[in-house]
Amino acid sequence: MHEINTNSTNTPPIISCRDVHKWYGEFHALRGVNLDVKKGEVVVIMGPSGSGKSTFIRTINRLEVHQRGDIVVDGIELTHDVRNIEKIRSEVGMVFQSFNLFPHLTVMENITLAPVWVRKWKKEKAEEVATELLQRVHIPEQAQKYPGQLSGGQQQRVAIARALAMQPKVMLFDEPTSALDPEMIKEVLEAMSDLAESGMTMICVTHEMGFARNVAHRVGFFDQGNIVEIGPPDQIFRNPEQARTKQFLAQILH
């Protein structure tokens, strides 16, 4: 784990969520979530399924709409204004559980699409950056293949490279390893660890304990639509304060 700049306490956080609420019809999915994330910080969010943790990180780039509370990303407040939403989305990269690569485009086209169309880069520049990123996730030789020709682990690494190509300030990971076979989980976690090492701000919804212990600055435990407990991994894993956290950890540690 690398040190984040502790002087930054007086600079504003890059992500700030205040009292975020969301309802699906009658169901109260998020119940006043508060979370500040500093630049360069890695936050892992754990919790039982159905607790709302995925919904929460999806509100940060507005894939889900929150009905109450404020979310501010890099100084831009999320409102119904479409321009703000698109602006934030181009600053926030997201990696999905099911990869969601574009199957009709090659790996290279997947990665260069958004830089070319959203950032208006020249194709040559975008391809240069893409090649670099593919090297960083150790699959430069797959550039001309289609997603369907790659393994799950390779696809997820392409998805990471695709998100990074936009040079985002924040990366969101929504259970990035849950759909993978065990032998492929490691290669994806390695790519994520490298990314954390490089100083990227990350919020990861994952149950990978090893990753949380070694890479995260803080681990948050999510239950029933809110963060029950949050703190450094050592504290959460060794001395959780809340009974619900203890119970959950006991379950996933067997």
Partner: peptide, 26 residues
């Protein structure tokens, strides 16, 4: 699948780009 829409949106593509580059071709 919904994931294709979400992936396109998460990358910051606008509605027209999402349709013409991602959804319609497929």
């Amino acid at each position: 699948p919904r994931g294709q829409y979400e992936a396109a949106e998460a990358l910051g593509l606008n509605a027209v780009q999402k349709m013409t580059l991602i959804i319609l071709p497929q």
